[in-house]
Design a protein around this nucleic acid. Sequence first.
DNA 1: AATGAATGAGCTTTCATTCAT
DNA 2: AATGAATGAAAGCTCATTCAT
Lengths: 217, 217, 217, 217
Amino acid sequence: MITKRRPSLKPRKVPQQSRAEHTVAAIREAAAGILETRGMEGLNTNLVAKRAGVSVGTLYQYFPNKDALIVALSLRQQAAFYAEAEGALDQPTGQTALKYLITVSVHQQLRRPALARALDFEEGRPAIAKELGTSKAAFQALTHRILARDDIPPQDNIEIATDDALAIVRAVVDAAGERGEVDRGALERRVGRALFGYLGISALDPAKSRARRKPSL
Amino acid sequence: MITKRRPSLKPRKVPQQSRAEHTVAAIREAAAGILETRGMEGLNTNLVAKRAGVSVGTLYQYFPNKDALIVALSLRQQAAFYAEAEGALDQPTGQTALKYLITVSVHQQLRRPALARALDFEEGRPAIAKELGTSKAAFQALTHRILARDDIPPQDNIEIATDDALAIVRAVVDAAGERGEVDRGALERRVGRALFGYLGISALDPAKSRARRKPSL
Amino acid sequence: MITKRRPSLKPRKVPQQSRAEHTVAAIREAAAGILETRGMEGLNTNLVAKRAGVSVGTLYQYFPNKDALIVALSLRQQAAFYAEAEGALDQPTGQTALKYLITVSVHQQLRRPALARALDFEEGRPAIAKELGTSKAAFQALTHRILARDDIPPQDNIEIATDDALAIVRAVVDAAGERGEVDRGALERRVGRALFGYLGISALDPAKSRARRKPSL
Amino acid sequence: MITKRRPSLKPRKVPQQSRAEHTVAAIREAAAGILETRGMEGLNTNLVAKRAGVSVGTLYQYFPNKDALIVALSLRQQAAFYAEAEGALDQPTGQTALKYLITVSVHQQLRRPALARALDFEEGRPAIAKELGTSKAAFQALTHRILARDDIPPQDNIEIATDDALAIVRAVVDAAGERGEVDRGALERRVGRALFGYLGISALDPAKSRARRKPSL
DNA sequence: AATGAATGAGCTTTCATTCAT
DNA sequence: AATGAATGAAAGCTCATTCAT
């Protein structure tokens, strides 16, 4: 069905009372739970409202349409992700920063793997992606800054490398989530190998790669 | 509603007349086209039928339900993929076999990138995955055999490695497809770096990795 | 198609506002009217909704599916029937109780004969019968208690006799309904003759049958 | 759905070759089998054709539409019934004739109870009833002649009595069929009691009722 | 005569969204 | 602000029937 006028996906109103805050949280959590257990095809606004213990009308008071719900969920997840990931910038080297990023990714994606995967897919839909633009840009900028560090081999096209890096991390972690893996350490090492390999950092001796590659520094 | 036996997702009848053969092809192509341009949410059986120039009834004559359409599309793509990929087994070494596999992946995924990505996602849905089991198993077996070659470092868990390898290839190629990349060579090199890195094959000197790693043999 | 949980045939939600109450009544009456005039083959949910002056969606808000409509109609009719029929237990003898039952049957079945006949048939469908189990059981229990009175000749198998008695009453009354009969008195007498004959009560002198049959008591 | 022009329900062509004869029989038997096991809602022309081992086109060659199939089934059953029932006319008295009729009814209805019941209902549909008019009339005439015998008490309205008699027999036998009864003797006795009671023949001493009622003869 | 591919009106059901209360 | 009854477009699917081969 073609939606006639597609209204903004931003929350309709900002909850100003704690009751409203609680309501919004309940709706969000209900949606997350459904997405997690039944996937996108099992998610419908009436069900979300019921699970949240509010009426549909109330849901539409805070979310102008269904997509806005997805956007809210994504935004919340990405915000949490970004908040943690920012710590990578404090790392001394690019490589430790990348490892930091991997740890954060694994941690976030494995907290609620099914939810994370469902959102990952929805974020690909143009209607959703559009709303997530700035959030994604922030993330890319962060990765970009890390990849630009001088212990990371220069990439042909750093934008592409950024995209690829995120895609690789996501792919391996999602596969792990699907399998129900819980051993984060092993997962982080696997992700690390793929990512460092991609970036051209020798897996054998990552700590010395800068020295080896740029001996004169 | 009365619970109906869930019909198999296999084609309902095998077309026996050439007219029917043509009809089935038209339906399949219409479905592929829609999936490509509008994604799963834009795919509906009435539209597929119309685009194929047949009536809905005809569509249901060959595909017992909507999912069966997806399955047929996936199966067809996987068959084409597998047919090409099998050539990897004729390669002299594991590493050349992997490269062969990457080339095939890139080639296949980049022919109709949007379609490939849409199918990749749908294949994750349990209802679809179930039907694709054997096809997927064949693919895993193939990859497994390559990873078991002795110029590929032994993996902790070869099943997981197989899964991860396929996920990594897919992730990078899908990202490229989303971006609209066309330079296959560059893409293959990037995929290769990630994959070889993951498997612990030095990107600097892949040809000698066996010798270096197992000097006493 | 994906197998869906077969939803219960019970009403989906109990109307809590008087508007809803009215809506449900309108739907039920529309369904009854259609069933009456066009039979089951003419009954479809879109038509019911239109005739009720509501949208299909509203119909499905109160009845999870088409069969639930039939069940609701049956239940309502049976409840009315049972409420009246219970009075039979207050009758002094088994025979007067039976006559009372016949009167009630004739009265109920002849109010809307076409509807009654249509429902009688639908109640035979397993899907419907299942939901009507307890209602039917109540009715059987009532008849059972009457047949067990001591002015009714003992039956070989009282369960069968109960079933048969109900079937006979229904058959004769339905036939009358089909013919468009309106003379209740004559109809009651005919039903009485069949039923009393079946039970082995002499039609010539029913009042004295107990004395005649069990003289030593 | 309203059928546009309702064509005659008579068989389109009379099979003139034995192969065609066989085909028609196969179709009829397939339809009967489906009606028996799945009821009217499970009966569809495509399925009938498949089960009969012919194409739908062939089915439509012999039966102009679905209803014609039902009519053919009914006609065949009624013909068999009537052929046997005619023997009743050779009975010496009305009462023995009635008993004969009951025996035949029980025999016929219990051969394929589910089929018989399904057809009984379908025969009530106006579209079908219309085609069965003469067959039904023959049956009524037969019953009429029996009821007019002078050892049967005169009925107020012999047409109604005829209808009622058939309805009563059918009701009790159908109930038995639904229950899965197989003891014909007991069933015949129960039917007899209801029918004789209805007609005002004393169950206590049926053999002498003529003498008692019409002593001067 | 037979086949079976094709048709398409029509049916059931869902669910995002609105709006009177 | 909240409710929840109501809406109705739209989707999936069936099946009686036709007709080219």
